[in-house]
């Protein structure tokens, strides 16, 4: 079955088109939907199997990144979103979308959905960072990252510094909820060191899932590595491939994450 995928937009969300493409290329039926269409009821969350909160600058990060739009959803769509989270459906939040999921209490949700337990705080540098990072997968639980051991992806955020209290962190580990950690180029832990860990995130955390592995949030942008030429340093890879007489690949590695979601429904 082709999962019906709703890509949220509005109020400064800005990665909806490329995110939608990544789902579409992997065989999902996609629709970019303004948050007000759900609020007004012209569209119903219940009609979709996958819900994506794309990256962007909802409300310009005013009152905290992802906070104002989370408030809007909580004030208007609380029941619908909690119901969606509890069903056998998938949710992804990328960058600003991750911040929204954290503010909605859908991540990490170690106890229940709807309670804020984690925050994506200002980067340690207190400045917006746009650069490529190396990630290593730590969870076997997360549906979105099956078959991915490590991946190279870009980040672009001012508030990506993951924080939660020690209790929550412990719970997350017990539940196998820590999905991605920042590493050095050789795969060894970033250990909080800039620029490998670009924001100062606790335990180098770059992405987490809920205890069920269906709801996933990550700071890096897999949709921005949709083709081979997107990757930082692809020119060197290309030159080597040409000299070895090998073909130049087309797809970007970020697509794998979207493929996993679509496969879940097949």
């Amino acid at each position: 079955m082709k999962p019906k995928t709703a890509i949220l937009t509005g109020y400064g969300i800005n990665c909806e088109e490329e995110t939608s493409k990544c789902f579409e290329w992997n065989g999902a039926e996609t629709e970019i939907i303004h948050v007000n269409d759900f609020i007004k009821g012209t569209k119903k969350l219940a009609d979709y199997q996958i819900l994506a909160f794309p990256g962007g600058f909802s409300y310009g990060d005013d009152t905290g990144s992802g906070n104002a739009i989370a408030n809007k959803i909580r004030n208007n769509l609380n029941e619908e979103i909690l119901k969606f989270a509890q069903e056998d459906k998938l949710i992804i939040g990328i960058c600003n979308g991750f911040q929204v999921l954290a503010n909605l209490g859908l991540l990490p949700a170690t106890k229940k959905y709807g309670e804020r337990q984690a925050a994506l705080m200002h980067n340690n540098t207190a400045i917006f960072e746009c650069r490529w990072v190396h990630l290593k997968t730590h969870s076997s639980n997360c549906i979105w990252t099956k078959g991915i051991e490590k991946i190279h992806l870009p980040i672009a955020h001012g508030e990506g510094n993951f924080y939660c209290d020690q209790n929550t962190l412990k719970k997350m580990k017990e539940n196998d909820q820590i999905v991605f950690r920042y590493t050095k180029e050789n795969g060894s832990p970033a250990d909080g060191k800039f620029p490998f860990n670009p924001n100062g995130s606790m335990e180098d955390i770059a992405g987490i899932c809920d205890p069920s592995g269906r709801i996933f949030g990550m700071m890096p942008h897999p949709e921005r590595f949709n083709s081979f030429e997107n990757e930082e340093g692809w020119e060197l890879k290309k030159e080597k491939l040409i000299r070895e007489g090998k073909p130049i690949p087309k797809k970007g590695e970020g697509l794998k994450i979207f493929e996993n979601a679509v496969k879940y429904f097949q």
Partner: peptide, 21 residues
């Protein structure tokens, strides 16, 4: 400046502001 300006959004970056290792 280059690293504080988002240059990968919209998913079409090919040659960016900073090149090489």
């Amino acid at each position: 400046i280059s690293t504080q300006y988002d240059h990968t959004v919209q998913g079409g970056a090919v040659l960016g502001p900073l090149q090489g290792k």
